[in-house]
Amino acid sequence: MLIVAAALLGLGLWGALAQQSIVMLLMGIELMINGVMLAGGGLWAYSAGGEPKGQLLLILAMAVMAIEMAIGLAVVVALYRARQVDMTEGLDSMGR
């Protein structure tokens, strides 16, 4: 279970670091949270005896995922409006 979760985490990090497009980078982060969810679910079922707080943690992970995506995509839209870039290479400074 945890090995599979680790594989998803590793794949997600690889994707997030290697992809040039910001949207693909977000996909990598999503995949990492996917791994976190799997690890959390596994630990909840096998090590926490079904403690409800474990479920709460997973719900929060889902909320994190939704927030990450909404803000991430909004930033992409704003960046594209401002500078016509959708690749990380286009962002060499924090200014304009």
Binding site: A6, A7, L11, A16, L17, A18, Q20
Partner: peptide, 22 residues
């Protein structure tokens, strides 16, 4: 459309390895 592919793959493998250790 990738950049720093080697570093990224290495980081991914390291995280995977760390996960396996845990």
């Amino acid at each position: 459309m990738v950049h720093q592919p080697r570093l990224a793959a290495a980081a991914g493998w390291v995280l995977f390895g760390g996960g396996i250790v845990v």
